[in-house]
Structure formats: structure tokens, C-alpha cells
């Protein structure tokens, strides 16, 4: 058992997502940074898909009621056990009675805390992920609150020796300037040629409205090609006839502030998606903080798939390192 002494800003139970229900309007939820999530589970010796805690900006204070093996990855929200700093990206041992707390966020936005065995909450539609907007999954369908008691499950597949670490190239670095790769489309034809170029040239700023649903960005106004709106589309030039939104798609309501849709976003609607963040870089945009800068880099589908394969190779190598440790 783990007692939640303080919940942090928004600490939720997440896993690899509620995949397979998108067409019913159910977004996948799940850890926003799936790379850091996966490595946390590997360091804890968990099976793929075990649930972890996703910690946003401000860490919780957690009191362990049993001995446990844990690992913390992701953005640098420096962890402390009984007020002594402990490393991230390393398998750690905690004893019954130990209190885990976190210092101010230094880099990135989200940290992942895996416990050997996984966080045990009911599986809803094949996932333990929290979807707070609908109040389903995770711990009572919501972010953690003071006084909650978490159970550790039985998703451990391997004993990883405490002190086992991942290093160097396997630890992503998050600066305050994020380069995020996108594929232009689906409805980029709605932007003027000039605005399409400006979209890629501008350094966008992350606004305080940036969460698991979406990231609203500030920069400058983008213009849409004037036209008589087709039947079924809204009257604003940024409207199209409703369509399914790809996860990571970026819409620009009224041309004013682009919104990148993330894991908890609405699955479809009538704003023109002008570009879509490649799946590998969803891991990175989820680590961008309010006030930080984002620049979008246009890539081809082939480049996006290569980036995904590279990411998967990296995860396979980390897994290999754990096996041989």
C-alpha cells in the first residue's frame, strides 16, 4: 500500500493506453510520454502495460506502507526519499515507512513513477489509464487526492537489481526549446501558402492551457483560404465538415491559437487539422511546460516511421540491458 500524503498538481494512474475504442469517441489516455513510461516499467521489472503514476509539474508526497522497488523517469522533478535526493532512471529500493517527495520541476513537465508490480486499479475497457474528463479508469476516474491509498499489483515479471540504471543516449533531455516533428495535413489546404510557411517558421509559446487534453500555443494569427463554406461545415473559415482528429493533430480555431490534441482529447470535430505531431514526438511535447517554446519541423511519413522504429529499437535495447543486468 502507498499512502498519498499530498497529491501534487495532477498525479494520475496511466499505462500504455485504452487503445481500440477511438471510433466510439473514447480517446486512449495513457502516459503522454510513452518512452519514459516504458523505461520506468522496465526498471521496475514490470510486464509491458503495467500502470504507473504520471506526475505533472509538482510531485506528490507518498508514504510506502510496505517494502517496494520503484523507478522514476521522465522530466526532471527531482525525487527524494526521506528528504535525501535519489537518482532518476534507476531501480530504487524503498522500505516500509519511507516517504517519497519531489523538488521543483527542473526540466520537462512529467515524471513517471513505476512500482514493481504496477499500480493496481481496476481494468476498464482493457486499460488502467485515468480519463479524468469522463471520470473513468485509474483511481476512481480522477487525479490522486490527499488520503488516497494505492495498492501495488502483480504485474512484475523480473527482479531488477536496485542500482540498475539506464544512461546516456537512453535518457531524453528536455530543454525549454522543443523541436517537434509534424506531418503537414490533413486539412492544411485550408491555410494560405504564407500561413502554412509561418506555421513552421514561428517559435510558438506554450500557454498555461496545456494539459493531457491539449496544448494551446501562442504565436501569431494564421489565415485560411477564403471560400464559401461547404454544407455541413461551420461558418468560420477554420471549420471543415466534421472528421476524425488524429492524435497529435493541430487545429487553429479561428486562426488564432493552435491547439495540439493529446491523449485525452476529443476524437473528432469540425476544425481543420493543419498538421499532426508524429507519434514519437508526442513523448516530447508532453514534456513541454507552460512558457516554453515549440518549433514545428515538417517531415515525411517515411521519416516519421523511421523515427518510430528508432524509438522502438531504443526501448528494445533498454529491455535487453535489463535482461542482462
Amino acid at each position: 500500500m502507498i499512502n498519498v500524503l499530498k497529491p501534487g498538481l495532477q498525479t494520475t494512474v496511466q499505462d500504455d493506453g485504452r487503445v481500440g475504442y477511438y471510433e466510439t469517441g473514447m480517446p486512449p489516455s495513457g502516459a503522454v510520454d510513452q518512452y519514459s513510461y516504458a523505461v520506468a516499467n522496465m526498471l521496475a521489472g514490470n510486464k509491458k502495460g503495467a500502470a504507473v503514476l504520471e506526475i505533472t509539474y509538482m510531485g506528490p508526497a507518498l508514504e510506502f506502507q510496505e517494502d517496494a522497488v520503484i523507478a522514476i523517469t521522465g522530466g526532471v522533478i527531482p525525487p527524494q526519499i526521506n528528504e535525501a535526493p535519489v537518482p532518476m532512471w534507476e531501480t530504487l529500493e524503498v522500505k516500509k515507512g519511507d516517504v517519497l517527495t519531489f523538488d521543483f520541476v527542473k526540466q520537462g513537465a512529467r515524471a513517471y513513477l513505476a512500482a514493481a508490480g504496477g499500480i493496481d486499479v481496476p481494468v476498464i475497457m482493457d486499460s488502467r489509464s485515468t480519463y479524468t474528463l469522463c471520470g473513468i479508469g485509474g483511481f476512481d476516474g480522477r487525479a490522486l487526492q490527499e488520503g488516497d491509498v494505492l495498492s501495488i499489483g502483480n504485474m512484475q515479471e523480473k527482479e531488477v537489481k536496485p542500482g540498475t540504471r539506464v544512461t546516456g543516449e537512453y535518457i531524453p533531455e528536455f530543454s525549454a526549446n522543443h523541436e517537434i516533428r509534424v506531418i503537414i495535413g490533413l486539412c492544411s489546404y485550408r491555410l494560405t501558402e504564407e500561413s502554412k510557411q509561418r506555421f513552421l517558421d514561428i517559435e510558438w509559446t506554450v500557454t498555461p492551457e496545456a494539459n493531457r487534453v491539449g496544448y494551446r500555443l501562442k504565436g501569431e494569427r494564421l489565415d485560411f483560404v477564403p471560400r464559401e463554406q461547404p454544407f455541413g461545415a461551420g461558418s468560420n473559415p477554420s471549420n471543415v465538415v466534421d472528421l476524425g482528429y488524429p492524435i497529435g493533430s493541430i487545429q487553429v480555431p479561428d486562426g488564432i491559437e493552435p491547439i495540439a490534441l493529446l491523449n485525452d482529447a476529443v476524437t473528432g470535430g469540425g476544425y481543420a487539422p493543419v498538421a499532426t505531431i508524429i507519434s514519437t514526438d508526442l513523448n516530447r511535447i508532453g514534456q513541454a511546460k507552460t512558457n516554453e517554446k515549440i518549433k514545428f519541423i515538417s517531415v515525411t511519413l517515411e521519416e516519421a516511421l523511421e523515427a518510430r522504429q528508432q524509438n522502438n529499437r531504443k526501448l528494445a535495447e533498454v529491455k535487453q540491458m535489463m535482461q542482462s543486468s
Partner: peptide, 9 residues
């Protein structure tokens, strides 16, 4: 006195 969060004060 520091802000532990980024945001609007």
C-alpha cells in the same frame, strides 16, 4: 517565496 509551478500569477 518561489512558485513551484509555471503559470499565471
Amino acid at each position: 517565496i518561489v512558485s513551484s509551478l509555471p503559470g499565471v500569477f
